[in-house]
Computed example of a mutant assay.
Amino acid sequence: MQLYWIYALGFFAQSLFGARLVVQLFYSEKQGRVVSPTIFWQLSLLASFLFLIYGIIRDDVVIIIGQTLSYFIYIRNLQLKNDWTKIPLVLRAVLLLLPVAAFTYIIAGSDNKLDQIFSKNDFTNPIIFAGAIGQLMLNLRFVYQWYYSEKHKTSILPLGFWVISTGASVLILTYATYRIDPVLLVAQSMGIVVYVRNIFIHFKSKAKAAI
C-alpha cells in the first residue's frame, strides 16, 4: 500500500507539470502572444519540489540531478517577476533547503549512486541514448530560457525554448514507444501539442506586429 502512495506522489507531480503547460497556453491564447505567467513558474516549482521528494524516496539519482538544475531556474524566474519575496519566508527556506538536502543525500549516502545512471541504462542502444538526450534537452531548455530572461531582465519563454522542447519531446516519445511507457507517452503527447501551438502563436503575433 505504501508503494501506491509513493507512485501517487510521482503521478501528482507529473500532473502539475502538465497543468503548468495548459495554464501557460490558456494565457497565451487569451493574449494572442506567448507569455510567461507567474502561475507557470509557481506550478513548476511546486511540481519539482514534490518530484524531488519522490526521487529521494525512490532512491533515484537521475530524478534528483535532473530536477535540481531547473528547480533553481524556476525560483530565479519568480525573482525576475518580483513574486519570489511574496512567498512566506519559512516556505522559501524549505524550498531552498530541499535540493541541498537531496544532494547531501547523494554524496553522504553514496553507494556508488552515480554509477546507477549507467548500470541501469544501456546507452549503447540508440533509442535509449536518444531518450537520454531528450531528457537532457528538457533540462537545458530552461538554461536557455534563463539566459534569455537574464539578458532581457524579465521572465520570457522565447521561441528557442519551444523549439528545443519540441525536439526533446520527439526523442522522448520515440523512447517511450520503445519502452512501452504509458506515463511518458501521455505526458509528452500532451506536451508536444502545447510546444507546437506556442511556436504557431509566436509567429502569428510577429506577423500581426509587422502589419
Rank of each mutant, 00 (worst) to 15 (best):
L98W: 04
G10A: 04
S48N: 14
Q42H: 14
Q14V: 15
N112E: 12
A101D: 13
V23E: 12
L157D: 06
Y148Q: 10
Y178W: 12
L173P: 03
L50G: 02
F203A: 03
T85G: 05
V22Q: 06
L25M: 08
A101P: 03
L140D: 01
V143H: 05
L16K: 09
G134C: 02
L171M: 15
A8R: 09
P88L: 00
H152S: 09
V90G: 05
K113Y: 13
L43M: 10
L171V: 09
D122I: 04
G167S: 09
K30V: 03
R58T: 11
L136E: 07
G131N: 05
A132R: 11
I211T: 11
S119L: 15
Q42R: 13
Y178K: 10
F12R: 01
A130C: 13
A210F: 14
I63S: 01
G66I: 00
L98I: 09
L173K: 10
S169A: 12
L46G: 05
L171K: 03
I106M: 09
I201W: 08
V35R: 02
V193P: 15
N77M: 01
L171D: 03
I201T: 09
V22C: 12
L52W: 00
L95V: 04
G191Y: 07
N198R: 04
Y175D: 07
L114N: 06
F12D: 12
V183P: 03
K120I: 10
A130W: 03
Q145D: 08
K204G: 04
Q31Y: 06
Y71K: 02
K30C: 13
L138P: 01
Q145M: 14
I106R: 00
L97P: 04
F12C: 10
V143L: 08
K206Q: 11
A207I: 05
V193S: 13
F11C: 07
L184T: 04
F40D: 05
L43D: 02
I180Y: 14
R33H: 07
K151T: 00
G10S: 09
V61N: 00
R92L: 03
D59A: 12
G131L: 03
I172M: 07
G10K: 00
I164W: 05
F51Q: 04
Q14H: 14
P158L: 08
Q2N: 15
V196S: 01
D83E: 14
L80H: 03
V186S: 15
G134D: 05
F203M: 10
V23S: 05
T177D: 14
I39Q: 02
L9P: 06
V22Y: 08
V34Q: 08
I73W: 01
S36H: 00
F26R: 14
L50A: 02
I164A: 06
L140G: 11
Y147I: 15
Q188Y: 10
L114H: 08
A101T: 01
G109E: 07
S44I: 00
L91V: 10
G167M: 07
L21K: 08
L140R: 02
S110D: 07
I6Q: 08
L9A: 11
K30H: 01
A108M: 11
T174E: 15
T174C: 10
L138E: 11
F17S: 03
V22N: 14
H152P: 02
A209Q: 15
L173R: 04
V62M: 15
N125R: 01
W146L: 06
M1C: 13
L157N: 02
Q14I: 14
I106L: 14
I156T: 09
Y105N: 11
I127P: 02
